[in-house]
Design a binder for these strands. Structure first.
Lengths: 326, 326
DNA sequence: ACCATGGGTTGAATATTGTCAAAACCTAAC
DNA sequence: GTTAGGTTTTGACAATATTCAACCCATGGT
């Protein structure tokens, strides 16, 4: 264990760690490494080391300002067409969907903190996208967001083939935001309606579900409604279920519930077996942040927006273009 | 004048905002300009332009983590405002003055060794703060400073209710620094001017006092000038003395001498009875290190600096803020 | 007291980035 | 259709930053 890092510190302007001093000179004063090396009395190479340490230690945060993504044409159009409070459109990059998803998640991760304020109770849904958003938060935030935020898990947990669960999504997000976390300690879907009812009645679960209705903000993704969708692969619905819902006009999936093109919840078999927020609860929130990308998400996103659950959107430019095409 | 910038619509990247795309690739994806140029189908120089545009348009936000840098900012400001060589500001921590004092002392203790060099003759004042600095040295330094340093006791000794005397301050400091130590074997203040004069004339004392004028660096604290101050409780001055000095405009205490807001020594009754360095000796040193903290020290510190005795400062962030407030 | 160890530092080779004037391009007016 | 005037892009060069293997020095164990 290296206890005290023993560095030379001559020529410093303040007694602060020389790493900070160097980072300050570089990023704040705009000096170049040669000048800094001169003033600090070390070699340029050492200055490089200091700066890298500053980066890895998180002293330096480089992010693209939200305005860049919310002001440009696609975002504006999206906002107008769907009457949103704000939209955040990130470039697709190379065509790979995977990369685009990461970009969208990262964008959401950078934007989210600025959308929250002390006292907020944020509901967090589940899914690959949301998981990545939570991950992305880590890099952009150093844990100094305005405190006193509570994160609630919007839907029950699910054994997934993806290695991330609803708990992990909300727990990660809470951790990155420095927020308290209320998990929902129950499966997302049960095989038997009675069991589900009894579980919902359990005091612990009931309290947790009740906490959900106190959320004033929420973050969720729109799920698509085809047979490759996560709804099926994660076991929420069987292929048969899916076909039935599609026949009823299902256009997308929101927090485990099927919605039609107008965003209305489609009543069905599953409702009684699901443990999670009811879609009604997501209406009229201070913020409903929809994070999704992909051509197959265009219709589900439109449905979710039509349902009135959405005030803010994060997506990719091609998806945005798809939503704007008529 | 906001015209639409017409750019060549190369590649399949949305022509809308190549600038953002480039910025994303550079800052988020970590690609270098050559790679970006390739993917975007433009020259590398163009990428430079895009990135610069992103900078000037404010898309890129480089922020230095607040926690690490606020203190540094204060130090910079302090240095500028008071024309100091360097300043070291430590965070206050929890509100407790006691803890803050310890932090400041530790900061000074860490900094001091790097401010000294072989051959230096360091004058050491007396006080709670200085004592703690000496103590703090113990932990950070194992006596491996460049040798050949001499420590001199700046003021005579004092029976105190605190259990540490001027000798102990300087002796400790000398020990921690691996320095020689010249103590001043006399009381700091005598009741009779004649006695003081005769004592000063004693060969041993005279030599020791003379040694003081050979100091090229000094470390001292600023004392406040109210009735709760150490000047009174340690018996240097009586309440009556204090009132008299305050009436003369005394703003602080430096090495047992009262100074006014401009840092000028206030001539008075005490001068003839004190055994210790004269403030003139502290002018134009290679280093005058002022270590103090507390709201009540703001004015005294400012006075000391105004008097020209100070080149380096160690203090707490709230005190620094107080000194910067106007 | 000695040596092994590991982090901090360094100089030189390498890679990346910034600069600048010239060229290409677009728009709009002649 | 052509030209003027502005902007964007470009290539070559200069400045700057990064990498890497070797070095130094303090530390801790033998």
């Amino acid at each position: 264990m290296a206890l005290v890092t023993r560095r030379r510190n001559a020529g410093q302007i303040s007694g602060e760690s020389i790493v900070i001093e160097a980072a300050w000179m570089y990023y704040h004063d705009g000096l170049n490494q040669t000048e800094i090396a001169g003033q600090l009395g070390v070699s340029r190479a050492t200055v490089v080391n200091y700066l890298q340490e500053a980066k890895t230690r998180g002293f330096i945060r480089i992010s693209l300002s939200a305005s860049a993504f919310t002001t440009h044409q696609l975002a504006q159009d999206l906002r107008e067409k769907y009457n949103l409070t704000a939209a955040y459109v990130v470039p697709d990059g190379n065509g790979r969907d995977e990369d685009t998803l990461m970009r969208v998640a990262r964008g959401a991760g950078e934007w989210l903190p600025s959308l929250l304020e002390p006292g907020d109770r944020l509901g967090v849904a589940w899914g690959r996208t949301i998981f990545e958003v939570a991950e992305a938060l880590e890099h952009s935030q150093t844990g100094d967001v305005a405190g006193d935020i509570t994160v609630s898990q919007l839907v029950g947990s699910m054994a997934t083939p993806y290695g991330f669960t609803a708990e992990i999504c909300s727990a990660h997000m809470a951790q990155r935001l420095g927020a308290k976390c209320i998990n929902l300690h129950a499966p997302a879907v049960l095989s038997d309606p009675d069991l589900a009812a009894r579980l919902r009645a359990e005091p612990i679960i009931r309290d947790q579900i009740e906490a959900l209705s106190r959320c004033n903000k929420a973050i969720f993704a729109a799920g698509s409604c085809d047979h490759t969708s996560h709804v099926v692969s994660s076991g929420v619905a069987s292929h048969a279920d899916l076909d039935w819902y599609i026949a009823q006009g299902a256009t997308g999936v929101l927090c485990g519930r099927f919605i039609d093109a107008k965003g209305r919840s489609i009543p069905g078999d599953l409702d009684a077996r699901i443990i999670g927020v009811e879609l009604d609860r997501l209406l009229n929130l201070d913020m409903g942040l929809l994070v999704s990308t992909g051509a197959d998400k265009v219709a589900p996103m439109q449905a979710a927006i039509a349902g009135g659950y959405v005030t803010h959107v994060v997506t990719s430019s091609s998806t945005a273009a798809g939503m704007l095409a008529e």
